[in-house]
Amino acid sequence: MMLDATERRIIEATQAGLPLSPAPYAEVAAQLGLKEREVIDLLRDLQARGVIRRIGIAPNHYALGMVANGMSVWDVDDAAASDLGARVGNLDFVSHCYLRPRALPRWPYNLFAMVHGRSREEVEEKRAEIAALLGAACRQGDILYSTRILKKTGLRIGRQGKA
């Protein structure tokens, strides 16, 4: 997915947020010396190519009470992992879902799904839902709760894609 210079400028100008004003794309356009129409067309094209995944609100799930989360991990039959991963990712309480390599013998899990809830109990209920969805294709699972944030820098994308 290659981006040209104008596309990068538009992303850099909007990734922190759109102006909260009646004509936000016109404001972005004025800032970049472009026409409103160009900004809208470029954003539409970026969305069609998957560079922009969606446009909308990023709710702060902590402030809204979703204070518990755990990294659930699953040892899923390789042949079924892709299909099942797609179904797990589609659950509304899963914020990230990936297939990753196992690291045997220390780490038998290949499916990672971050689960959010209002309490540890709710997260455990959601985890049970995932286990039920995976069924017999899943040999074992675990969940890793975070006990401390040791470092957190925003994954804001700079010119070189560096955090």
Partner: peptide, 25 residues
């Protein structure tokens, strides 16, 4: 939306970018 942002209930309003699309690993 201004109020929700000021109060921290939403962190951002705008496009969500696929990080890998901007380059980087």
């Amino acid at each position: 939306l201004e109020n929700l942002r000021r109060r921290g209930a939403i962190t951002r309003f705008g496009p969500f970018i696929d990080a890998a699309a901007m380059g980087g690993a």
